[in-house]
């Protein structure tokens, strides 16, 4: 039960940081809120018995990816965000989007709280240590692992080609 308490606290922080991202008028603040959110996510991973992912989350997401974001924001000097005004003809979008978001939220709450599924039984707790994850990664998931490496290579080349100055 203590897990749940911790999770509720973490969840509150997480939602708060996400709202901060949504509402901030400065891109740098938004990025920092996102970093905070990712770190909280990493802690939740730890609580949920996923230490490997927690570490990857911190190093890849909060570390590498968000540094890239901040770097680009600084580079472009685009941290000051224009007030969010819709172009003419798109004014219907905001209420519709909010309505749909609320509907989505209600649907998931309905599924989780009003009609919870009881059919799934927890099996034996499994070894989720980084070692176990590594073994899985290089045996069962070796092929997707290789494919993903190709994907990263393609992304790298793509990024280089896109940002190259053309004369």
């Amino acid at each position: 039960m203590s897990d749940l308490v911790i999770l509720i606290l973490l969840g509150a922080l997480s939602v708060a940081s996400a709202l901060g991202l949504l509402l901030s008028q400065n891109a740098i603040y938004a990025a920092l809120f996102l970093v905070l959110n990712f770190i909280i996510g990493a802690v939740i991973f730890l609580v949920l018995n996923a230490p490997f992912l927690a570490v990857v989350q911190i190093s890849v997401y909060a570390g590498a990816i968000m540094v890239l974001f901040v770097f680009v924001i600084m580079l472009l000097g685009a941290e000051r965000l224009a007030p969010t005004e819709n172009p003419p003809g798109l004014n219907y979008q905001r209420p519709l989007a909010v309505t749909l978001g609320v509907a989505l939220l209600l649907l998931s709450a309905y599924v989780l709280f009003v009609r919870p599924s009881t059919s799934v039984v927890m099996t034996q707790p499994v070894d989720t240590s980084p070692q176990a994850v590594g073994i899985q990664l290089f045996t069962t998931y070796a092929f997707p692992f290789e494919v993903v490496s190709l994907l990263l290579l393609a992304a790298m080349i793509g990024a280089v080609v896109l940002t190259r100055k053309t004369e």
Binding site: A97, L100, L107, S108
Partner: peptide, 10 residues
């Protein structure tokens, strides 16, 4: 897209 997602989920 969101309309579609909500509709499918519903």
């Amino acid at each position: 897209m969101l309309v579609g997602v909500v509709a499918l989920l519903a």
